[in-house]
Amino acid sequence: MKTFGGKVLFLNRSDINTDEIIPARYLTEVTKDALGPHMLEDLKLDGFDAQAPAVKSAGVIVTRENFGCGSSREHAPWALEVNGITTVIAQSYARIFRQNMFNCGMLAIELPGADIDELFARCAGAPVDCRVDLDRGTVHFERDGATLLSKSFSLGGFDAALVAAGGWVEYADSRF
């Protein structure tokens, strides 16, 4: 199983598509590592700098609705993963992206809109860490050792099994 949690990157926009996460011009790369430098390169978001240290050191993305819409490219979760981001927390996801995350054994956590609003209101703007407790189904947002906010989430049975197995190939190969 992968490890989850880390510094939080807040992306305050809905409908962030997979072309923004990893542009198609890099889809001729045949290794996942080669995608790393280009993560979020085309993101349309005021003041966003894809090369900023806060982006490169993040372990968790917190964002709005319909994250990962558009192209089916699994290069999007791979680009996140090679940059150390194995957890995304959003109000909702595009179906293919969400499945790709779990298929890679990564976490696509859904929280209600009110929780996401609260996260942006209380935690964005200054560095914050996210601790993920998979057993309890909780995420904890901490700054300087103090917990700012905790939220509960639930995963579907299948999604949880994929995370535990490390991905869909491992899971499917032992059963079908």
Partner: peptide
């Protein structure tokens, strides 16, 4: 689908 679903 993504590459992993395709692979399976």
């Amino acid at each position: 689908v993504g590459t992993t679903d395709l692979e399976v």
